[in-house]
Design a protein around this nucleic acid. Structure first.
Lengths: 217, 217, 217, 217
DNA sequence: CATGAATGAGTCTTCATTCAT
DNA sequence: TATGAATGAAGACTCATTCAT
């Protein structure tokens, strides 16, 4: 037994049923321990959620920041950032879903810190898009809406991507970069010959399952 | 008292805290009635959710279908469909959020029917995109991913749009049509002089609130 | 609508499910009225039970007393009393069952009065048996036990007798008189040519149903 | 704490007030535990009732069957059976009352099984009486009615017998055998010198109380 | 490290009853 | 006479959490 296994069980159940609908005994059962034993690893049900969310958001920020550091060109930075975002979301589908959905389940004690990390992550996109627009490599009617749209569509990957499905994850990453470029009217030839791709890391909290056949044709 | 007011209270709380985390007494208080009185209007907490979701999904299908009937050109149909989708989502932000998020809260008794409506709605997009691709007005690397991305980004409107904010809803609708056209490499001049816009209807379950200043600058 | 129909509905449900397990709305539905209307006929659920029990016990006492008045011979009085008891029980199966079972459901306000009636009724048996024993027409090891046994077996008729079944009610009455005579070692020839039989009256509270085929072969 | 103590508390309350009228908190209080703790020992209120009834009916069948095995003579078998029945009822007054009265409180899930056990028990009496009649040791106008009467009067012992009262339980057993013999016109001398008596066992569910002075003089 | 027993506060739902219409 | 709407109290049951072992 260790915290990782417990987090995996938690993420699986939280993703399926939601934090509020998941009982502590259910969590214990899924992790193969008594519900009381659970309190040896974690102070409370909410703390368990916090530990999952913190790891998740920190890795998102780390991975996104790393992508930004690979180049100083906004267009390439954006490609890296989207590649990171989609890669992470595809690799940690359940965890990232929980981190997004269950923000509202946090008490006032914990929400500000987690929301702060989320804001920090989103600001990575805002910065790149703004610089790219200023420099003239991106062009949109409304930059804010474009940013929100691009992030949202990337996040959606968590809902449908299946490992061992029709598409490899790197194909999905490439494709989403292409779509973002189109939305921003960026020049796709900027990408030729450049390695912007970010290899995603799997979190300890991400369950192994979900290798089922792709549900979306 | 009437069902509408109760639905509004329910949607507000379900959107903020989730179905499972919302108590029956809380619902009653928000609707201005005793929790027991609630059972005069609705058979159970879940039935209340079902009534909201059913109304929501039915109106989405109706509105989307109406949009498709305004033209036989796939490109214009898509514009209408996106206009409908974004308009509906912006007008019924909380209700549509609840309808999306709380599918998992339904019991096996009710989920299939609701999921069926959701699938029916999504198939509207699939049909149009497929026909447009066959006809040659749309061009993508992967049509399925494009479809998912376009739907997802439209759905995201529920998270940030604020009436009386920086943007009018019709501007948002227009902008999302433009972005979708870019993703699909569709010719934007096809839209000039054409009225594809669908005027959204507000559901009885949608709370009046939320006229707050836009949170996203 | 009238009190009688309401009592019938009540007796049917109280006999099947018990007083505590029967709801006021259930009662209304069975009587064909709204549960609120019920309060025009009766002050409360308990008062409804009381009205049923009072009518029942009063008629038992009246019928038993009448039987005693038909003769001054203890042996013949007992025959009349048992005939009355069994006849009443067979004619008002459900009502008498409710009157017996639901004594415990009464509040302290009403129980003493009802228990008083019950005691008064049982004392009819005690008196007759004692006089008969003193006179020498009855003979037992223990008179108290004999009395309890005889009453109990007569009461049991409520559980299995079915009108239109294998046996006519008057046959059952006769048979129980015979059995009681045996238990008391009374001379059966005392009964020849004497009409001790008491014709039972049906209470307003007794439902019409139960004309089903006898369940006990 | 253990199941037995809980069963005792349940039997006491169920016998006094009925299953439906007894609350879960009341049960907990009577057993000296919190109402929630009760669910560590039993799955539901009904399951608690079932456990009591099952134990009771099984022991009745076991004891009755044992009595039958002590002889092959129907007259002696009947004596043993009645002795067993009355002994059991006098020893487990409350439990047997609950087992009889609360059959109707069971849901459709549990009632068939319990009713099956009850039927099995009653058939012991039917078999013996039928064989005895065929052999000619019993004589009645109507065997079915005699059987019902005999069983019912024995069951009535639960209502009035008090340990440490005027009569010892074995006296009651003997007396009821005598009365049954009279009802059936059986020869009492058949019993002389024969030990047909069955020693009753007390169930774990039977409360200790009730050693009060006999209520019926 | 692990757990069975325990509990107060909470869950959704039903209760008997009242009252304006 | 009749009822739909309303409610405080109570129903059975589950909750997250604690603690002695």
């Amino acid at each position: 037994m260790n915290l990782g296994k417990l987090q995996q069980a938690a993420v699986l159940l939280f993703a399926q049923q939601g934090f509020a609908a998941t009982g502590i005994r259910e969590l214990g059962a899924a992790a193969g321990i008594n519900s009381a034993t659970l309190y040896h690893y974690v102070g409370s049900k909410e703390e368990l959620l916090v530990s999952v969310m913190k790891d998740c958001l920190n890795e998102m920020i780390r991975s996104g920041s790393e992508a930004l550091r690979k180049s100083s060109e906004p267009a390439l930075q954006l490609a890296g950032l989207i590649s990171s975002h989609v890669g992470f979301t595809g690799t940690n589908q359940l965890t990232s879903r929980v981190a997004e959905y269950e923000m509202r389940a946090l008490s006032e004690t914990n929400r500000p810190a987690m929301q702060g990390l989320r804001d920090e992550y989103e600001s990575l996109f805002a910065q790149v898009l703004e610089r790219g627009t200023r420099v003239g490599v991106f062009s949109t009617d409304d930059l804010t809406m474009a940013r929100l749209a691009i992030m949202e569509m990337g996040t959606g990957v968590a809902h449908w991507f299946r490992p061992n499905g029709r598409l490899e994850l790197h194909e999905v990453q490439q494709n989403f970069v292409n779509m973002a470029y189109r939305v921003l009217a960026a020049d796709p030839t900027l990408l030729t010959g450049v390695d912007f791709m970010v290899a995603p890391r799997q979190l300890a909290s991400e369950p192994d399952s979900l290798s089922a056949p792709e549900t979306v044709p």
